[in-house]
Amino acid sequence: MSLFWLVIRQLAEIEAMAASKKIITRDEWEKKLNDVKIRKEDMNKLVMNFLVTEGYVEAAEKFRMESGTEPDIDLATITDRMAVKKAVQSGNVEDAIEKVNDLNPEILDTNPQLFFHLQQQRLIELIRNGKVEEALEFAQEELAPRGEENQSFLEELERTVALLAFEDVSNCPVGDLLDISQRLKTASEVNAAILTSQSHEKDPKLPSLLKMLLWAQNQLDEKAAYPRINDLSTAILEDSAV
């Protein structure tokens, strides 16, 4: 992205200028930053990309009307994708599986790892709800054959079934499986797979741009002292201690 390359170019310039650490004042730095022209449309595209990928369909719709930025994907498909994600997040895994299959039957048929994780999540939900017998039957019927096909699935299955062995699951070595974070993990895996099946990048571009910014600042730190962005949420330039 252009912002990134700009920083890189500055970095190169500074590197060429001096071997010792150069000091750049706030005025100089702000002037340099102001010289950078970033097209409004590009910024808007980045925002739209983030909204679409993360599934904020209403915000995306509003943003389109306000900014005139066209999303690179049919907004209706976002609603379907979000419905799947929400179903996993609220523990309705079976419902989520049916929704994915309606969306595109290939996703779970060609992605054994994702399919296993969804089934594993189903098992976790059964255990959470205290349905021990149903859980055992499900593990035996649905998950055991997958474990036979794949060694790492088997290990994960064993870990999950271990939940049944503990009286106090909140305080056991595999208790993390019952965490809400496990649901979120599974939900984001499904989300990514649906996006990939729609030929869409599975990650928004914005976070990786921020990562690049941090990387570039770290590189620059070795060459120069300059007003740095330390808090990404405010993006305030802070003078560095020289």
Partner: peptide, 13 residues
């Protein structure tokens, strides 16, 4: 048919 479909997707057995 939908039931069969949802049973078999991803499930070789």
């Amino acid at each position: 048919i939908r039931e069969v479909k949802n049973h078999i997707i991803g499930n070789r057995t």
